[in-house]
Simulated assay, not measured.
Amino acid sequence: MRESLGERIFSGVNITILTLIGLISLFPFYYVVIVSFADPDVFLKRSFILFPESWSLDAYKYILSTNTFIKAVGVSGYLAIVGTLLSLMVSAAFGYMLSRKRLFGRKLLMIALLITILFNPGIIPNYLVIKELNLINTLWSIILPGLLSGWNALLLKTFFDGIPESLEESAYIDGANDLRIFFQIILPLSLPALAAFGLFFAVGYWNTFFNAILYISDSSKFPLQVLLQGMLVQSNTSIGEAGGLGEEIVPPETIKMAAVVIATVPILLVYPFLQKHFAKGVMLGSVKG
């Protein structure tokens, strides 16, 4: 069908407005990347640049030569990898358990799960629990509180509800036990859901900030986001002993922007590997039939 003049004008206006909104939204990211690669001499002469006359890696060299920053990246990487694997395993096991109708006490567990979604005990009770468990100043104080999310477990339960129980019955007839069924049948069929939630968990652990502020006072165990926050709010960017570059030749603003880029890139690199499963996983539970 041919569009009328009014429809073409309306589509053109919509495209123009959405394009402008998209460009405005992307500009902060563009500016951060440009400033991080700007030559220090050029940046010192011009406080605002849209495109640097010359490029430099001095800010990245300075950051990557500091032991403190490298340790923070290692801590965040450890949290993202270990935390994501444990959260996926616990959430998948709990969601699968709730999806099996033969489970004794299934309704009580479901009620308990819903209570955790509707009511939050608050910061102080959580802190007291972590303290009584002697987890203060340990990375487990960040991993364990977020190990199981009631909402995520509920969504995974909805996904597992769609797996026919006849598969399990056939496996039981062949002599498989519950663990073998879960690891060799259920989990391989759940890759779209696991990929989607794995990305969510990884982003959450990589960007962890508030729990680290609450439970960790040892600066050597600070994750990357806590260190980055300290750099952004302080007037200086002293983050450790740098080898080969003096801080005085690198503007603090370019160092901060480079730190933001380094903190963002790892998660961006993970997404393409999970993309084919992610589109299916985010739709789980949206259609019930």
Rank of each mutant, 00 (worst) to 15 (best):
Q229T: 02
L167K: 01
I115A: 11
L189G: 00
L187C: 06
V32S: 08
N134Q: 12
A93I: 03
M231E: 04
K221A: 11
L79T: 05
I124M: 11
G281H: 07
E247Y: 11
G289L: 09
P40N: 05
T158V: 04
G243W: 04
I249M: 10
K107F: 08
L103C: 04
F51N: 00
K71S: 12
V35M: 05
T237H: 01
L85I: 15
M1V: 07
R180V: 11
G230K: 05
Y60V: 01
S36N: 06
V42G: 00
L109N: 11
D41K: 12
A80K: 01
L199W: 09
F278P: 00
V32D: 01
K276F: 03
L128K: 09
F182H: 06
A176M: 12
V82E: 12
L224P: 03
L50A: 08
G162P: 02
F222D: 04
N67R: 01
R102E: 15
N236A: 12
Q225R: 03
P272D: 12
V13H: 04
T138Q: 10
Y127I: 10
S217T: 11
T138L: 09
L245M: 06
G198C: 06
V129N: 13
S87E: 10
N177G: 15
F94N: 08
G22E: 14
L50Q: 02
P223Q: 04
L179E: 01
Y215F: 15
R8M: 13
P188G: 07
N120L: 02
N207S: 12
E241F: 11
V270A: 14
Q275I: 01
L88S: 07
L214K: 04
P40F: 12
N207L: 13
L268E: 04
F222H: 06
I173D: 07
N207K: 09
L139A: 08
G230D: 14
G243A: 05
I255E: 02
S4I: 01
K107L: 09
L191W: 13
N120G: 02
V203R: 11
L114T: 10
T254V: 08
I262Y: 02
G162N: 12
L135W: 10
F10L: 13
K101S: 14
L88Q: 08
P223H: 10
L228S: 04
F94R: 00
F182L: 13
I117S: 05
L88V: 07
F37V: 15
S235D: 11
S4G: 14
G122V: 02
A93G: 03
D161W: 05
K221E: 07
P52M: 11
I143R: 07
L268W: 08
T158C: 01
S65I: 06
E168V: 02
I173M: 15
I49A: 03
T237F: 03
I21K: 03
L64G: 03
K107A: 12
I9S: 03
N137A: 13
G6P: 00
S36M: 09
S166I: 08
L23Q: 04
P52G: 05
A93Q: 08
I181D: 05
K256M: 14
N211Q: 14
K288W: 10
L144H: 08
I24M: 14
L23M: 13
I181T: 12
A80S: 15
K131D: 10
